[in-house]
Lab assay of single mutants.
Amino acid sequence: GKELVLALYDYQEKSPREVTMKKGDILTLLNSTNKDWWKVEVKATANDKTYERQGFVPAAYVKKL
């Protein structure tokens, strides 16, 4: 199945390749080969529509579930 990670801290994206997350968010882990930056998929809701974004977050800010 898919691997999930838990956001340990809030993170505000600093570039278009990154994604914003809030502490407590559960994210889908896409790639953890880089030890510093993990690629995740974030589900977000805006205007009653759910959309998914993929991007990088600092590996130290998340932990595998």
Results as ranks from 00 to 15, higher is better:
Ala44Gln: 12
Lys49Ala: 11
Lys63Thr: 13
Tyr61Lys: 06
Trp37Pro: 02
Leu30Gln: 03
Asp48Phe: 09
Glu18Lys: 04
Tyr9Phe: 13
Thr33Val: 09
Tyr11Leu: 01
Tyr61Leu: 13
Ala7Phe: 03
Thr33His: 10
Lys63Gly: 06
Val19Ala: 05
Val40Gly: 00
Lys43Ile: 15
Thr33Tyr: 09
Tyr9Ser: 08
Ala59Lys: 06
Tyr9Gln: 12
Gly24Asp: 04
Val42Met: 12
Trp38Ala: 03
Lys39Gly: 04
Leu8Ile: 09
Gly24Phe: 04
Glu41Gln: 12
Glu41Asp: 05
Trp37Arg: 02
Val42Arg: 12
Trp38His: 01
Ile26Cys: 06
Glu13Leu: 06
Lys35Glu: 09
Lys14Ile: 07
Lys64Trp: 07
Ile26Pro: 03
Leu30Cys: 07
Val62Ser: 00
Pro16Asn: 10
Trp38Gly: 00
Gln12Phe: 15
Thr50Cys: 15
Asp36Gly: 08
Leu65Thr: 04
Gly24Cys: 10
Val42Ser: 12
Glu52Ser: 15
Leu8Pro: 00
Gly24Lys: 02
Glu3Asp: 10
Val57Glu: 01
Glu3Thr: 14
Val5Cys: 13
Ala60Glu: 10
Tyr11Glu: 03
Leu30Ala: 02
Leu65Met: 08
Val5Lys: 00
Glu18Ala: 05
Thr33Trp: 09
Lys63Ile: 14
Asp25Ser: 06
Pro58Ser: 03
Val40Pro: 00
Gln12Arg: 11
Asp25Leu: 04
Thr28Ser: 08
Leu6Ala: 05
Leu30Lys: 04
Lys63Glu: 12
Lys39Trp: 14
Val5Leu: 10
Leu4Asp: 04
Thr50Asp: 10
Asp48Leu: 09
Lys22Ser: 08
Thr28Tyr: 12
Ser15Leu: 07
Ser32Met: 08
Tyr61Met: 13
Lys22Gln: 08
Pro58Ala: 04
Ile26Thr: 05
Trp37Gln: 02
Asp10Gly: 06
Arg53Ile: 08
Lys49Ile: 14
Asp48Thr: 08
Lys49Trp: 10
Leu29Glu: 01
Glu18Ile: 03
Lys22Met: 08
Lys39Leu: 15
Lys64Tyr: 09
Ala7Gly: 03
Phe56Arg: 01
Asn34Thr: 05
Lys49Asp: 09
Ala44Cys: 15
Gly55Glu: 00
Ser32Pro: 05
Leu65Glu: 03
Thr33Ile: 08
Glu13Asn: 07
Tyr51Cys: 11
Gly24Leu: 03
Val57Gly: 01
Gln54Val: 13
Ala46Asn: 13
Glu3Lys: 07
Lys2Gln: 11
Arg53Thr: 06
Tyr61Trp: 06
Lys22Asn: 08
Val5Gln: 00
Glu41Tyr: 08
Arg53Val: 08
Gly1Ala: 12
Ala60Tyr: 08
Leu6Trp: 07
Met21Ile: 14
Asn31Gln: 09
Ser15Ile: 04
Thr20Glu: 02
Tyr51Asn: 08
Gly1His: 13
Lys2Trp: 11
Val19Gln: 01
Glu18Asp: 04
Ala60Gly: 11
Gln54Trp: 07
Lys64Glu: 06
Trp38Asp: 00
Tyr51Pro: 09
Asp48Lys: 09
Leu30Pro: 00
Asn47Leu: 12
Lys39Gln: 11
Pro58Met: 04
Asn34Gly: 09
Gln54Thr: 11
Leu30Ile: 13
Ala46Tyr: 14
Gly1Ile: 12
Tyr9Ile: 08
Lys49Asn: 11
Val42His: 15
Asp36His: 14
Lys35Trp: 06
Arg53Pro: 01
